[in-house]
Structures are given as C-alpha cells and as structure tokens.
Design a protein around this nucleic acid. Structure first.
Lengths: 181, 181
DNA sequence: CCCTTTTCACCTAGGTGGTAAGAT
DNA sequence: ATCTTACCACCTAGGTGAAAAGGG
C-alpha cells in the first residue's frame, strides 16, 4: 500500500537546465524487531470486534529478521530538469510499501514491526560520456530523522487511524466528523 | 472527449540512445462544412427518443468556419529515448478533442462537421547547443490518409456507435451482446 | 429540422479502513 | 495472545452513450 503520510520535499539550488533523478530508499534504524506492550489492546464489548489502541511505545521483541538488499523508488517524473523539480513541492505519493518478499511490482519491501529511516537521493544526470567516473560526486543524500517509522500490517494506534481517516481523501467513507479536527 | 479509435503507431529506425518528442496535430482536409443528408434520421416510434442512423455519406453544406491556428498534442511520455519509443506500440489514447474555442485544458480544438487529417510528428532532440539552426532537419512528419475523419458532437452513424460500445471498455454499460461481434 | 449542450447512470481503475478468518 | 491475510463496502477520479433540453 501507499506510504502515509506522503514524503514531500521542496528543493532549492539545482541547476535549472540540468537533468536530475529523484529517488527514495529505506534503511533499517536498528537491528531489532518490535512488539506491542501486552494488554493495551482492549476489546470493546459491544459492538464486538472493535479495538481501542492506546499504545504510544514499542517493546523490543528480539533481533531483526533478515532482509534482502533494499529496493529503490524513483520518482515517476524522473528524469526532469532542475527547473521542473524546483517549481513546486515534490511529492512521493505513488511510493508503495509491501511486506511481500516475492513482490514483483517493484514496491519497497519492508519487514513489519521493524523501524525504518526513509532516505531521499538527488542524482545529477551527468551529460559527459564518461559520466560513470563521476558517479560519486553526482549525487547527494538527505536524511530527515523525524520521518522514521515502524512498519506495520495494521494500525497500532487509534490516533493514527483517525489522522489518516481525517486527511486521506480515499478514506472519506469512514469520516464521522469534520476533517478540520 | 478522447479521440476514438485511438491513433497508434509502431516505430522503427530511431537512434535507441537519442531523445525524441512525439506529437500530433490536425489539419483541415478541405475548406468545406458538411451536413447529414435530409430524412435519414428516422425516429423510431416506440420507445420514443430513439434514433436509427443510416447515413454513410456527407453533403457539402458550404464553406468552412474560420479556425484559429491548430494546437499540438505532445505524447505525455515525451521526451524519451528511441529505445523506449520503439519497444512497443505508441498509443495516443490521452489525446482529447473539443469544439470549445475557449478551451483552456490544452485539448485539440476542431470544428464540428468539418473533415480533418491527423498528422504524426517525430522530433529529434538535438543535443548540440546551436540546435535551433538544425530544426528543419530534426523532425519528420507522417500522414496516414486512412485516418481522416469528420468531427461531430454526436454520432451520425449507428454502426460507429455500436463499434465503440463493443470495443471501448468505458462503454461496457451499453453492451447487450458479445464484444467479439 | 439539424445540430449542440447538459446531465446522468453506468462503467474502469484504483486507494481506504473495517472485519473476520488464519497463522504462529 | 499478537500479528497477518483476504475480502469487502465505500470512496476518488475520470471515460462512456443515452436522453432530454436548448439553439438557430
């Protein structure tokens, strides 16, 4: 599924006439697997099947699962001129996450219940024909620590569910109050 | 609305590594306005409001309406490498036609009841910085006379309606028989 | 009368969380 | 227990011809 909230950046300082590729990848924050604290999922007696989530912290549940080398997501507008990238906020809303190790849709594969750090890379498309030699100096990586998250297969915190229902247009069917709240 | 059937081409002979822009435009076939032969639209008594169209020819109805300079439709994948364009059929299915002279969606503006010839242009993106000087030799235009058509605001021939209902997935709701027919 | 415009039910295509069943 | 999967009703977004209304 799509990552939510969407990673968005405003870019400055590119050469307006040069081509750039924009991409993202995800690196493990640590070598741990996490789990919910016990007893914090309370089944509400009626209607049955409803859960209330309170947990705001995670417990370490052991060592991380093994992972294959991480995939990369190219922004679908790549390559494009610096002027194009800079003239408005760049949004990675098409980026999709999966826990399916056999995924063949090119989605980003993550382990559920593991912590990840999104990374943003800008690659300058070097027009010189021996450009491979300059690969090292032709890209720059940006890491925003505030974008770290724990991957899950289901929401673990009711406030996150409500945030997304309130702010994602595709979840409008579940709104029962003003999205401004 | 979208042009139907869609203009599609298979391309050979490009430089796989070079960039090309693909585009289409529409030129008047003649300086005439057309109309339907009288009496060929038969109202079927019941159910009311149904028409049966038989007309397979057009009558000249006078001189063409004035037209502003024609717009151009760039294939949305432009620019792309020759290898990309050649590896599969290129489809102009996003191309849209309108009769609204004030259109600000960038659609192709045509006069209804006039005849048009679609044209297909391939533009080589010249990497030389004085490329403007070579503009004349850097493009090639292809005209397929069998793609000529009369623009309309409503179907004038029941067999065209049926053809489209049978072959356009968005008209599936009007099918009452096998699309193979 | 011929043609154009507007509206609408009905599609395609795909992104939501809920729910119940399954897995461990 | 906790976590995962599969399915579903309900959305967004947009492409259809039919039908009725409008225009000259």
């Amino acid at each position: 599924r799509r990552m939510f909230p969407t990673f968005q950046v405003k870019i400055f300082g590119m050469d307006p006439m040069a081509d750039y590729m924009l991409l993202m990848d995800f690196v493990p924050v640590d070598d741990k697997r996490y789990r919910q604290p016990p007893g914090l999922r309370l089944r509400v007696p009626s209607p049955p099947g409803r859960y209330a989530f309170h947990s705001s912290s995670w417990l370490v549940a052991g060592k991380a699962d093994p992972a294959t080398p991480g995939r990369v997501h190219y922004h679908p507008d790549s390559p494009a001129k610096g002027a194009q990238w800079m003239k408005q906020i760049v949004s990675f809303d098409k980026l999709k996450l999966t826990n399916n190790l056999l995924d063949d849709n090119g989605h980003i594969i993550l382990n559920s219940m593991h912590r990840y750090q999104p990374r943003f890379h800008v690659v300058y498309v070097d027009p010189r024909k021996d450009s491979e030699k300059y690969a090292e100096e032709n890209f720059k990586t940006f890491v925003f620590e505030e974008t770290r998250f724990t991957a899950v297969t289901a929401y673990q915190n009711h406030r996150i569910t409500q945030l997304k229902i309130a702010s994602n247009p595709f979840a409008k069917g579940f709104r029962d109050c003003d999205p401004e709240d």
